[in-house]
């Protein structure tokens, strides 16, 4: 497909064109298409979904899609899974939970492999959000890798960040301890049918008390994503957070963060690719590592302290 044809198909809202455009962005060829469409972005509501593996992020995503569809809104979903550092292959399995939406034309689901990116997102996630936004989706849900503590990127990219935790799990307690608290706009205690759900709520509350909050204080919602319980409340909490952002003007700050995130990804991507090429010729004889780094940086053509 030529780039012109792609753009034409995209303008005609053909799903295949959106799918292909995201692939372009993933392979470092997104420049033309994203630039051409960027003026059409800025309308979508972006929701980030993070939390340890297995808490029910994908299941929550599916329930939120159901809710949004019930309100007549179209939804784009981006699910990020890790790539193998060795083979670079990946198993992308979040879709399983979203199967009920596969044939709904107003829902578009894209799985992305992290391809070595840290921070729980893929390098091109921001581009994918822009493309889905331009395509016209009302709501965009972004599910992160959900491993460990490097989940800060999602808070930059999304307007509202949900942090999902589950009762009776060591991982969830680790997350509380690890200072992920600050990125949450809404805490979701999923699997609320579990006997230890109340204890987790207490732990979240007491962890929150350790911090000083100004402006928005994170809400706490209990859900049972599988059965759909608590999704109304979760949706309402998201709406309140959005209203807060809009009323206080903080939405501009969030948009700026997302923009900066995207710029950083693009710039870093280019630097890294160049760096990879330069380092390929490097060997351990001759220079000491500092001198070698100086040389590489000067070849990059940038001035760094």
């Amino acid at each position: 497909m030529t780039d012109d044809a792609l753009l034409r198909d995209f303008e005609m809202r053909k799903p295949r064109a959106l799918a292909r455009a995201i692939s372009y962005a993933e392979s470092g060829r997104g420049r033309d298409i994203v630039r051409a469409l960027y003026s059409q972005t800025g309308r979508a509501l972006t929701i980030g979904l993070t939390g340890p593996p297995g808490v029910g992020k994908s299941t929550l995503a599916s329930a939120l899609v159901r809710k949004a569809r019930g309100l007549g809104k179209s939804v784009g979903v981006i699910s990020v899974d890790p790539s193998s550092p060795f083979s670079h292959g990946a198993l992308l399995g979040d879709r399983i939970r979203l199967a009920e939406h596969f044939t709904d034309e107003a829902v578009f689901i894209r799985s992305m492999a992290s391809r070595g990116h840290l921070g729980g997102l893929a390098g091109a996630t921001a581009d994918a959000v822009s493309l889905m936004d331009a395509f016209g989706f009302d709501v965009i849900l972004i599910e992160t890798v959900g491993v460990g503590q490097s989940e800060i990127a999602i808070a930059e990219l999304a307007q509202t960040t949900l942090v999902a935790l589950q009762p009776g799990s060591g991982d969830s307690i680790q997350v509380l301890k690890a200072g992920i608290m600050e990125i949450a706009d809404v805490f979701v205690v999923n699997k609320a049918d579990h006997p230890m759900a109340n204890q987790l709520r207490r732990e979240i509350r007491s962890a929150m008390e350790m911090l000083e909050w100004k402006g928005w204080i994170p809400e706490l919602v209990a859900t049972q994503a599988l059965a759909g319980d608590g999704i109304e409340e979760l949706w309402a909490a998201i709406q309140r957070h959005m209203a807060y952002l809009n009323e206080t003007g903080e939405i501009e700050g969030r948009r700026r963060n997302a923009f900066v995130h995207q710029v950083r990804q693009l710039a870093m991507g280019r630097i890294e690719r160049r760096l990879d090429v330069l380092l390929e010729g490097e060997n351990s004889t001759g220079l000491d590592p500092y001198a070698a780094a100086d040389r590489v940086i000067s070849t990059l053509g940038v001035q760094l302290p």
Binding site: S58, L91, D94, I96, L226, G228
Partner: peptide, 9 residues
């Protein structure tokens, strides 16, 4: 509700 499983390879 109906069950779905997570992908495990």
């Amino acid at each position: 509700g109906r069950y779905t499983e997570r992908a495990v390879l």
